[in-house]
Design a protein around this nucleic acid. Structure first.
Length: 428
DNA sequence: AATGCGAACAACCGCACGGTA
DNA sequence: GTACCGTGCGGTTGTTCGCAT
């Protein structure tokens, strides 16, 4: 059976809303409240579809909308949230008071998606799990010939009576509070790729009342004051703190957020990974990939060491896997496989450390299994890449960029030109 | 001054999901 | 269990208009 249309489309007006329509809708909602969108147009005397009314109200007429250009802080936040949530605009909008999902979506599509990203590993030699990737937004040189200022800027010089009337509110202190974090750490172009696990983690961090209670008891254990936990802003702030913990240099990067891992020491192994990278891990690309990953019949890649494919702890009974390799308990009961590194270029165990670190972070991060597809491989450090060719291309760029890639201080894969074809072939 | 390009963004559309009868 | 309804979401399209040529 076909789906009933949301409204009778015959005789309904489409296209831009007039000021008169806006006024009618506004007055009606002010008098009767939101909701009942289907019947609203009829009751209000509008020749519009109910959905259209809802959209108009939510995206434009609501009095709590924040107008004006997206600030740098907001842009940064959008980038971060998009890296975590993907195109879940409503979720992102929920962290930007006064901004609508549509607005953010448009902004992303018209602004941020045009930016390319490079990835900088920190040069810090600190053995610290908090020193990780510092991606940067690099604006594309404008390709447009002309361009225009933001519509809001244009509107400022125009008569926009209704909107002005409706939006003469001030930005609340709470909103200001949200945007206090000025550290822009935009993440790679994302992703339609969903990081379901990460999303679950984020949702957990924001919504789990038990955890919130816990955090209240701990006080500012995560660096937030109790006053920040006010209703309506609390969830956002909790998340903010955790997202950006890494930037504050002291706390655990909760992007990894392995449930139950609360201590920094739990994450030391991630620090090992960092050190390996900074320590100029030397393998050529094929050796690296061939050493650590094998393709299975299913077509997915699995992390492997020599002949052995790491088993996910989660595939077995929680942490009681059957792997006979050395097993080390890390963190809160999480297990770490100690593989045997077989590469002949890795006599000092760095490869092992790197790979096991990746295994650990992936293993726990994905919570599903240890099979790795391309994206997962790249996702291991809390960042994601999309499946698009363009993004893979960007990734390749990142890999071989002397200044920004793995070889910031060294050539990670030797002469990159000679490795280029190999890398492309491998990814293909 | 005319024209075309392209950025900005408002609005539409189809689908998914939860609630309810 | 099924069908329907209301609503929300995200992708896409259409419109406007500043700027460069």
């Amino acid at each position: 059976m076909g789906r009933a249309p949301c409204c009778e489309k015959v005789g309904l007006k489409k296209g831009r809303w007039t000021a008169e329509e806006d006024e009618i809708l506004t007055k009606y909602i002010q008098a009767n409240g939101e909701g009942s969108w289907r019947s609203l147009p009829k009751n209000a005397g509008l020749l519009r579809c109910g959905k259209s009314c809802r959209l108009r109200w939510i995206n434009y007429l609501r009095t709590d909308l924040k107008r004006g250009n997206i600030s740098v802080e907001e842009e940064s936040l959008i980038s971060k949230l998009h890296a975590s949530f993907g195109n879940r605009w409503s979720l992102i909008a929920g962290h930007l008071p006064g901004r609508t999902d549509n607005e953010i979506k448009n902004y992303w599509n018209s602004h941020l998606s045009r930016k390319i990203f490079s990835y900088n590993y920190t040069t810090s030699t600190k053995h610290d799990a908090t020193t990780m990737i510092e991606p940067q937004i690099i604006a594309f040189p404008p390709k447009r010939r002309g361009g225009r200022t933001s519509r809001w800027a244009m509107k400022k010089n125009k008569t926009y009576a209704l909107k002005t009337k409706l939006n003469n509110h001030q930005q609340s202190p709470k909103q200001v509070q949200i945007h206090q974090n000025n550290d822009a750490v935009p993440l790679p172009p994302t992703p339609s790729l969903e990081s379901e696990n990460l999303t679950m983690i984020m949702d957990f961090m924001a919504l789990d009342p038990e955890r919130e209670e816990e955090e209240e008891e701990v006080g500012d254990g995560l660096g937030k004051s109790s006053s920040q936990q006010e209703e309506n802003t609390r969830g956002t702030l909790v998340q903010e703190d955790q997202y950006f913990a890494v930037e504050e240099g002291e706390r655990i990067n909760e992007m990894f957020c392995i449930e139950g891992w609360k201590e920094k020491s739990d994450y030391e192994i991630l620090g090992q990974y960092q050190e390996v990278i900074n320590g100029c891990w030397e393998l050529n690309f094929n050796e690296f990939m061939d050493t650590c990953f094998v393709e299975q019949e299913s077509g997915v890649l699995s992390l492997t060491f020599g002949e052995e494919i790491l088993e996910s702890n989660n595939n077995s009974d929680n942490n009681s896997n059957n792997n006979n390799n050395e097993e080390e308990v890390v963190g809160n009961g999480a297990t770490r496989n100690e593989p045997t590194c077989t590469t002949n270029q890795c006599s000092n165990g760095e490869c092992r450390d790197l790979c096991s670190s990746m295994a650990l972070s992936l293993d726990h991060g994905n919570n599903n299994n240890s099979d790795l597809d391309f994206e997962s491989v790249i996702q291991f450090n809390g960042n994601m890449v999309s499946k698009s060719l363009e993004d893979k291309e960007n990734l390749l760029s990142w890999l071989w960029e002397d200044d920004d890639g793995w070889g910031k201080d060294c050539d990670q894969f030797g002469d990159i030109d000679s490795q280029l074809d190999v890398m492309v072939a491998w990814f293909s």
